[in-house]
Structure formats: C-alpha cells, structure tokens
Amino acid sequence: MPSYPTPSHARSGPRRRSLLTGAAGAAGAVLLSGCSDSASTDADERPSAAARLRARAARDSGELLGRYDAVIAAHPSLAGRLGPLRAEVKRHEAVFAEGSAPPTPPPSSGSRSPSASPSRKPSVPKDEKDAVRELAKAEKELAKSRGIDLLDAPDELARLLASVAASGAAHAYLLTEGDK
C-alpha cells in the first residue's frame, strides 16, 4: 500500500493527457486546413497541369517503348533479356495515359520537328552492347527527368513519378550490369 493517500473514487471528466492530445490534434487539423485552403486557389490550374504532366510522361514512356522495339527488331537475340523491361515500360505508358490530357493537335501552318514525329524510328547501333548501352542511357535520362518533374506534381502523381523513376533507374542498372 502506498504511503500517500489515494482517492477512493475515479476522477470524472478528461485527464490532462487527453486534453493535451486533443489540443494537439485540433492544432494539427487547423494547420492542415490552412494548407489546403491556400492550395485551393490553384485548384483551377492544377488538374490541367497534372494532366499535361501525365500526358508528357505517357509520351516519354511511349518513345522509350519505341526504342526497346527498335533494339529488339535490330537485335532479336536480345528479346529475352529486354522483353521483361519492355513490358514494364509498356505498363508505365498505360498508367500515365489513364489520366492524361488529350493530345493537342499539331499547328496547321508549321512543320513538325523530327523529334516530335511519332513515326520516326530511333536509330539502333549495329553492335548489341552499344544498343543496350543506349537503352540504359535513355532509361537513366528519363528517370532523372521524372525525378525533377515529381517536385512540381500533385501528391499522387508525384508518388507515381517517383515509382516509375526508380523503376527506370533499376532498368538502367540491369542493362549496364549485363555488360559486365
């Protein structure tokens, strides 16, 4: 038995810890709502910017997919090694295309640049190792670009870009490790 007197009945009402926890939760809610209120001014612009970012990411994945297809067509012996990576890139393209903005029509008066032409096939080196190195370089550059893009993206799209950028970096690693 303790040497100090204990109350014979349980306290009614909230305890100090409960009050402090509740106050901290209320303060956090006020801070979060303050943040969301300031972001709501950009609500009109943000969805279209996010849709444009998704469209660009889908287009970039499509171009990378075209590179994989060109390398596999030029070097069929690499199909087994590149097939799983190509399948991942194809999934990335599909996921980005789901919520992207519709493509804008090309300007009617100007000519399109060769890099913007979807029918243009990328050149493939004659040497298999050089072709794979170019694929690795393209994967690495795209992963870096997506890492930069995610800084300005809304939360869910930023997570997707980060995930796909990490996947691209892993692809680059796998492509370069096969040469060793």
Rank of each mutant, 00 (worst) to 15 (best):
G178K: 05
R11T: 07
A166N: 10
G99A: 13
S111T: 06
A70V: 05
A138V: 06
K121Y: 00
L151A: 13
G28A: 15
L32M: 11
S61K: 02
D149T: 04
T6Q: 15
S40F: 02
R91D: 15
D130Y: 03
E134P: 10
L53A: 14
D42F: 06
T6V: 11
A10L: 13
K126W: 07
P84D: 08
R120M: 07
L160H: 05
G80H: 06
E63M: 08
P122T: 07
S109V: 10
L142C: 03
D60Y: 01
P122F: 00
D130L: 13
P103T: 13
S38G: 10
D42N: 10
L142F: 02
S123R: 11
K129H: 09
A79N: 04
G168L: 11
G28E: 04
Y68S: 08
R112G: 15
R133Y: 02
A26Y: 00
P7I: 09
D155Y: 03
L175N: 03
I72K: 04
R52P: 01
P5Q: 14
C35K: 13
P125G: 01
D42A: 12
A74V: 00
V164C: 10
A43S: 14
A169R: 06
I148Q: 14
L53W: 03
V164P: 06
S38L: 15
A57H: 01
L32D: 00
P84W: 04
G178C: 05
S167Q: 09
A136R: 02
H9F: 10
P118K: 00
